[in-house]
């Protein structure tokens, strides 16, 4: 059943301008990162530091608390928008499909979008890095690890933005929520609340350990999984009780 749901969700994205977002978001993040890194090179580089890792710290700083959460907000709103506009919800829920399958289908699609974004982020980071003449040994596995952690850390946020996007009939509401809650993300990061604040979690997961305020990663990932489970439970439950009018 989920296979068909996923096929259909992908079909619905046909002819969309999504690729623009895939490119603009990561590209913007990488360009800002390198600009900032090269401008303040002496400040960031201590003796013995790897240039790639220091540059990545900047990429994580621009992507994590700003671009990525807003992109997640847009992605979630985007895949709910067509349903709101064309009356898709009532059709979906009068078909013999479980409410949870509809929700999980959308959830997995957004994960797919975030994965594409991360992949392009990686590509842009490497290519532009070489163009700008970044030196040092390239920490391939470390960076790929940050990508995977970044995707994982987006899960609670994806569920939360989906819940909002399903309920709000317009594109503006989830987007506004996304922006308003993303803005303080970097401030929240240095408070104890940061580890359960969904807009901060991606940044924390993507930052190198010595640059991160996290004391215990075991605790962080426990909180991450915990907040994901709670949000997912709430999302599924509220959907099955939703009066579609």
């Amino acid at each position: 059943m989920l296979k068909n749901t996923l096929y259909v969700e992908r079909l619905k994205l046909k002819r969309s301008k999504l690729w623009l977002l895939y490119i603009i978001g990561p590209l913007l993040g990488v360009l800002l990162a390198y600009t900032n890194f090269l401008k303040n090179y002496d400040l960031f580089m201590q003796p013995g530091d790897n240039e790639w890792i220091e540059a990545w710290t900047q990429a994580a700083l621009f992507m994590g608390p700003f671009i990525l959460p807003i992109l997640v907000g847009i992605y979630a709103a985007f895949i709910c928008r067509e349903e709101h506009v064309g009356g898709g919800w009532k059709q979906l829920f009068t078909l013999p499909i479980k409410h949870s399958a509809v929700f999980l289908g959308k959830f997995l699609i957004v994960i797919g979008m975030v994965t594409v974004t991360m992949f392009l982020l990686f590509i842009f980071f490497v290519v532009i890095g070489y163009v700008k003449g970044i030196e040092g040994s390239f920490p391939t596995f470390m960076l790929l690890g940050f990508m995977v952690k970044g995707i994982l850390a987006c899960l609670p946020l994806i569920v939360l933005q989906l819940i909002i996007s399903i309920r709000a009939k317009t594109f503006g509401v989830p987007l506004a929520v996304s922006i308003v809650f993303t803005l303080p993300a970097i401030i929240v990061a240095s408070t104890p609340l940061g580890q359960i604040y969904p807009w901060t979690q991606p940044m924390l997961a993507m930052s190198p350990e010595d640059e991160s305020p996290i004391q215990s990663y075991a605790l962080f990932y426990t909180l991450l999984i915990g907040s994901f489970i709670v949000l997912m439970w709430y999302g599924l439950r509220s959907l099955s009780k939703w009066d579609i009018s």
């Binding site: 079909l11 619905k12 046909k14 002819r15 969309s16 067509e82 506009v85 064309g86 009356g87 898709g88 009532k90 059709q91 009068t94």
Partner: peptide, 14 residues
């Protein structure tokens, strides 16, 4: 059951 409730559902980009 097959149904059409109020306005028909359509995805404009399809």
């Amino acid at each position: 059951i097959g149904s059409l409730v109020e306005s028909p559902t359509y995805y404009g980009n399809l």
